[in-house]
Computed example of a mutant assay.
Amino acid sequence: MGNVNNLKQFSYKEIEPLTDQINGPILVRENDTKEFFVKKCYPLYLQDNLMTLQKIKHSNLPSIQEVVIEDGQLYLYEEFIHGKTLTEIIKTSETLETKMILKRTLDLLEALIALHNEGLVHRDVKPGNIMLTNDGVLKLIDFDAVRVFEEEKETDTVQLGTIGFASPEQFGFAQTDARSDLYSVGVVINVCSIKEYPKKQLSFDPFLHDLIVKATKLDPKNRYQSAMEMQAAVKEKWNQLNAAQQQTVEPVGISKKAIDDSEQQHVKTPIRSFLGNYVPGFRTGQPWKMTLAIIYYVFVLIGLPGTIYEGRTMSEKLLVALDGSILFILPVLLFTNFLNFHEKIPLLNAKKNVLRGIGYSLLVLSWLIYYGLFLFVTNGGVRK
């Protein structure tokens, strides 16, 4: 099993595609052992890299069954992982505890150490390529962008990576190396902490902040120079967190969920949880957004009831209430992704900015048409 074979050493039965993509991963079952594997198509130029990957046996990386060439295509057969991606976990979680983030970062760095020791750079470390198995084991997956560092090159031959998580050098500024993966790890930590990219907002968690800042320095020389160096820094934060938790005496019978920030640790109350989950402006926890939200809500709560009160009849009061709701409240719900409904609309959930722009334009148009119809039906309503 040491070389790429033109004929498979094992025979498989294809079960079903795992995505809608052309040449996307396919779930297969090995005919003799009945084990499930994932069949993935890769560019032929990745042949040597995938063969190197096959030699690596590590609990935080998927095991590779074989690498073969079929009909001029390169295919990799790897273990089928039962679990969820980190993206799914982040989306369905209100917050991720600091201790959990540090633990998973250590697991992720273990996977990268194994890759880097063989000269491989992953180049696409992101939550979507990190899985947690049903047994709680972290796996770094998907090697479409994997490459080998070559000292004589100034830039990568093929520039790949995911915007937001990819390091600056992945866009042609320099050749990628192990430090490029560590940049992505820093971004992943920040997203796990506050669901934002570091360049937009940095986590103020005292046990994560410094790790993120150093890992995401623009100049690779100022980052951690190896996954082992970053691992040592994460272990230090892990020990500090454990020591801090041991000094905290919790009341018997009360479950305390600590949420760290730069100034204090506080328990998430039902009111705070309601604001963070459902009230636009409070869900991100960003001070400037919350300030604007408070000003806006005060304006609406003071202005709208006063206007309604001026109505002479009950029907006029009702029309004023509907008019104000459509004009001031409905846009907030539509454009702040209330209850994450944007995730269910293809254009608003598109990865390309152009498509998302079209989606929001249609959303604005729909709101204007709806408001126009309301005014037309009510013969101008209260604005007549």
Rank of each mutant, 00 (worst) to 15 (best):
M1S: 13
N5S: 13
N6W: 10
E14K: 14
E14T: 13
I15N: 08
N23S: 10
I26R: 15
N31T: 08
D32Y: 06
F36I: 07
C41R: 13
C41D: 02
L44H: 04
Y45K: 09
L50D: 06
L53N: 06
L61R: 06
P62S: 14
Y75V: 01
E79T: 14
I90P: 02
K91C: 00
E94R: 12
L96E: 10
E97S: 13
M100E: 15
I101K: 12
L102E: 12
R104Y: 15
T105I: 07
D107E: 15
L109F: 11
L109D: 12
A114G: 14
H116F: 00
H116Q: 07
E118Y: 14
L120E: 08
L120P: 02
V121L: 06
G136A: 10
G136H: 10
L138N: 02
V148L: 03
F149K: 06
F149G: 01
E150L: 04
D156P: 04
D156L: 07
D156E: 11
T162H: 06
I163W: 07
F165M: 06
F165K: 01
A166S: 09
A166E: 06
T176Y: 01
T176R: 02
S180K: 00
S180W: 01
L182D: 05
L182H: 07
I189E: 10
N190T: 01
N190Q: 02
N190W: 06
S193E: 02
K195L: 04
Q201K: 14
S203K: 08
F207V: 12
F207A: 08
L208N: 09
H209K: 15
L211N: 09
L211I: 05
V213N: 09
A215H: 11
L218G: 05
P220T: 07
P220K: 08
K221C: 00
R223W: 03
Q225G: 14
S226H: 10
A227F: 09
E229Y: 02
E229V: 04
A233R: 11
E236I: 12
L241M: 04
L241P: 07
A243L: 10
T248G: 00
E250M: 00
V252C: 02
K256N: 04
K256E: 05
K257I: 03
V267L: 09
K268L: 13
I271E: 14
I271M: 13
R272S: 14
Y278C: 03
G281I: 01
G285E: 03
G285H: 01
P287W: 13
W288F: 10
T291C: 01
L292S: 09
L301W: 12
I302V: 15
E310W: 01
M314P: 00
E316A: 03
L319N: 04
L319Y: 03
L319C: 03
V320C: 05
S325R: 01
L327H: 03
P331K: 03
L334F: 09
F335Y: 14
T336W: 04
F338S: 08
E343K: 15
P346K: 01
N349L: 08
A350T: 05
L355F: 11
S361C: 13
W367I: 10
Y370C: 12
F374N: 10
F374H: 14
G381S: 00
